[in-house]
Computed example of a mutant assay.
Amino acid sequence: MNALMAGGAAWTQRLFGVLLCITLVGNMQAAWGAIDYLKAMPPKGSVRQGEVVYVDDGRCPTGEVKKITGGNQMTGVPRQVECVKKPAAGAPP
């Protein structure tokens, strides 16, 4: 009986591992599948340091959007703003 229970535990662990992988891949595809574009610059302090958001406010040349990389006011790291080509829908942010 113990051998059967040990086999059942191994099967359960494998199933859990497979389900975890499917969930992670699904979440990555959802995150990379669509990029949200803000219509206006976010308020200072609202974008975490290193976080990237895109703003399509019409101030960059055609086909480009603003890429905002968050800074940190407390440590003196400035927010970075640059116009970049509009990222493809399937590209990682």
Rank of each mutant, 00 (worst) to 15 (best):
V18H: 03
G26N: 15
P61I: 01
K66D: 05
P87M: 01
C83E: 05
V53W: 02
T75I: 14
Y37F: 14
A91S: 09
M41W: 01
W32D: 12
G50M: 04
V84G: 05
T12C: 14
N72Y: 00
R79P: 03
A6P: 03
Q80M: 12
K86D: 02
A91M: 08
G33R: 07
T23A: 10
E82W: 04
V77N: 03
L20D: 08
K39H: 07
R59P: 01
M41G: 06
A91Q: 11
Q13T: 14
Q80W: 04
E82D: 14
G33H: 05
W32I: 02
Q80A: 14
T62M: 00
T75N: 11
E51S: 13
K67T: 09
T69F: 10
M74P: 01
L4N: 04
L15C: 09
R14K: 11
A91V: 10
V47I: 15
Q13R: 12
V81Q: 05
K86E: 08
R14M: 09
Y37S: 05
P93I: 13
R48D: 15
A3T: 03
R79H: 03
M74I: 14
G8S: 09
A89W: 15
Y54P: 06
C21S: 12
I68Q: 06
A30S: 12
K44D: 14
A34I: 11
G8K: 05
W11K: 06
S46N: 02
P92Q: 04
N2P: 04
V18E: 11
A34V: 12
P78H: 01
G33E: 07
W32Y: 12
G58L: 01
W11E: 07
G26K: 06
G70F: 02
G70P: 06
E51W: 10
A31M: 10
C21N: 07
K85P: 15
L15I: 10
L24N: 02
V47T: 00
R48G: 10
S46G: 03
G7E: 01
A30T: 13
L4Y: 08
R48P: 04
A40H: 09
V84H: 01
M41Q: 04
G70H: 03
S46D: 09
G7Q: 11
E82Q: 09
G63N: 07
Q29R: 12
K39M: 06
L20K: 00
M41R: 02
G8P: 08
E64S: 03
A88E: 05
K66F: 15
G7M: 15
R59D: 13
C21D: 07
L19S: 10
M28S: 07
V18F: 06
L19A: 02
S46V: 05
G76Q: 07
V84S: 04
A10R: 12
V18L: 13
